[in-house]
Simulated assay, not measured.
Amino acid sequence: MSSYDYASKLELKEAIHASYLLFDNEFQEIDESLKDTRIAEVDKTPAEMIAYQLGWLDWVDTLSHEELFTQGIHKWTGTNPNWPMARWIHINSVAPFKTFRAKIRKWKKYNVQH
C-alpha cells in the first residue's frame, strides 16, 4: 500500500494530524519574536511554513468520501485513476509537514549558531 492510499477520510485526517504533531513539536521551540526571521539557508520562515499547512483538516472535513476517493469528481484532479483528491491532499499536507520538519530543524540549527 502506498503512503497516499487511505481507506477512509478518518485515516487521511489521522495521517495529516500525526504529521502536524511532529511539525508542531519542532515549531514550539521557536521564540515568537523569531518566527518571521528569514535565513538564506532555508526558503521559508517558520511562520510561512505553518501558514502553508493551516486548514487542511478543516477542508478534508468538508469533502465527502466520494470526493476524496473517486477520481474525476473535481476536474482539477485530472483523469489519471491513481490521482484521486486524497492523493493530492496527501502530497500537499502530509508530505510537506515532513519536508518542513527538516527545514525548521535546519532553520533552528542556523539560528542557534548565529
Rank of each mutant, 00 (worst) to 15 (best):
Leu68Glu: 06
Glu14Ala: 11
Asp36Met: 08
Asp5Val: 12
Thr99Met: 08
Pro81Ile: 15
Ile30Thr: 05
Tyr6Ala: 01
Ile16Pro: 06
Thr77Arg: 03
Pro84Val: 07
Ile91Ser: 13
Thr62Trp: 00
Val60Glu: 01
Thr37Glu: 06
Phe100Ala: 01
Ala86Arg: 01
Ala40Glu: 09
Gly78Asp: 07
His90Met: 02
Pro81Phe: 12
His114Tyr: 00
Asn82Val: 08
Arg38Val: 09
Asp61Trp: 05
Ile16Cys: 10
Asp58Pro: 01
Tyr6Ser: 09
Thr62Lys: 06
Trp56Asp: 03
Lys44Met: 14
Phe27Tyr: 15
Asp36Pro: 06
His65Cys: 02
Ala47Asn: 14
Trp83Met: 14
Asp36Gln: 12
His90Leu: 02
Glu26Phe: 02
Thr99Lys: 11
Ile91Cys: 11
Lys103Met: 11
Glu32Pro: 07
Ala95Arg: 13
Leu12Gly: 05
Glu26Ile: 05
Glu48Lys: 13
Asn92Met: 06
Lys75Leu: 11
Glu67Tyr: 01
Ile104Val: 15
Trp83Pro: 06
Ile39Gly: 02
His17Phe: 13
Ile91Trp: 14
Asn111Tyr: 03
Thr62Asn: 00
Gln71Thr: 15
Ser33Gly: 01
Phe27Met: 13
Ala86Asp: 03
Leu63Asn: 00
His74Tyr: 14
Asp58Val: 04
Thr77Asp: 08
Lys109Gly: 07
Leu21Ala: 09
Phe27Arg: 13
Gly78Thr: 04
Val60Leu: 01
Ile16Arg: 09
Lys106Glu: 12
Lys103Val: 00
Ser33Leu: 07
Ile89Tyr: 07
Lys108Trp: 00
Ala102Glu: 11
Glu41Pro: 02
Asp31Ile: 09
Val112Lys: 10
Gly78Pro: 07
Gly55Glu: 05
Tyr20Gly: 07
Thr37Tyr: 00
Val42Lys: 10
Leu22Thr: 12
Asn80Gln: 06
Glu66Ser: 09
Ala47Thr: 09
Asp31Phe: 03
Lys109His: 12
Glu67Asn: 04
Leu12Lys: 03
Tyr6Lys: 08
Ala102Cys: 05
Asp36Tyr: 06
Ile30Gly: 04
Glu32Met: 13
Trp76Cys: 04
Ala102Ser: 13
Gln71Cys: 12
Ser19Arg: 10
Phe97Asn: 13
Ala15Met: 05
Lys98Val: 08
Glu11Lys: 15
Leu34Ala: 01
Trp59Cys: 00
Tyr52Pro: 02
Asn25Lys: 15
Met1Gln: 04
Asn111Ile: 02
Thr70His: 05
Ser3His: 11
Lys13Met: 15
Phe97Lys: 00
Thr45Asp: 04
Lys9Met: 03
Asn82Ser: 13
Asp43Leu: 13
Asp58Leu: 11
His114Phe: 00
